[in-house]
Amino acid sequence: MTDLLPSDLPRLRTLRTWHAMWVERIDEAIAVAEQLERAAAGRGAAAAHPGLDR
């Protein structure tokens, strides 16, 4: 085990929960960023071909 982590189970479990929550928040932020990127790319494609969206 590394010296940077506590050795007792309750604190290890607390750290595990805390980090899992952050990973979930990061995954949500990634999903939003990907959605925004796709939307921007879609707007760029529509602007490049203005007659195709009718």
Rank of each mutant, 00 (worst) to 15 (best):
M1I: 09
M1K: 10
T2W: 04
T2A: 13
T2H: 08
D3N: 13
D3L: 14
L4M: 00
L4A: 01
L5H: 07
L5T: 10
L5W: 08
L5M: 14
P6S: 03
P6V: 04
D8F: 07
D8W: 09
D8T: 14
D8H: 15
L9W: 08
L9E: 15
L9C: 06
L9P: 03
P10S: 10
P10E: 09
P10R: 11
R11V: 00
R11Y: 00
L12D: 04
R13I: 08
R13M: 14
T14E: 13
T14A: 15
T14M: 09
T14P: 01
L15K: 02
L15Y: 02
L15T: 01
L15I: 07
R16P: 00
R16T: 07
R16Q: 14
T17P: 02
W18I: 12
H19I: 12
H19R: 15
H19N: 11
H19A: 09
A20R: 15
A20D: 11
A20V: 05
W22R: 15
W22E: 12
V23M: 03
V23H: 01
E24W: 04
E24N: 10
E24P: 02
I26K: 05
D27Q: 10
D27Y: 02
D27H: 04
D27F: 02
D27L: 05
D27E: 14
E28D: 12
E28W: 07
A29I: 06
A29E: 12
A29R: 14
I30N: 12
I30A: 06
I30P: 01
A31C: 05
V32P: 03
V32E: 14
V32F: 05
A33G: 02
E34I: 03
E34F: 02
E34S: 08
Q35H: 09
Q35F: 04
L36G: 08
E37H: 12
E37L: 09
E37D: 09
E37P: 00
R38P: 00
R38V: 01
R38T: 03
R38C: 01
R38D: 02
A39R: 08
A39D: 15
A40G: 07
A40N: 12
A40I: 05
A40M: 08
A41T: 03
A41L: 07
G42K: 00
R43W: 07
R43N: 11
G44Q: 13
G44R: 15
A45N: 06
A46R: 14
A46H: 06
A47E: 15
A47V: 03
A47N: 10
A47M: 11
A48F: 05
A48K: 14
H49Y: 03
H49C: 01
H49N: 13
H49M: 04
H49V: 03
P50G: 04
G51D: 10
L52R: 12
D53P: 01
D53R: 09
D53N: 05
R54E: 12
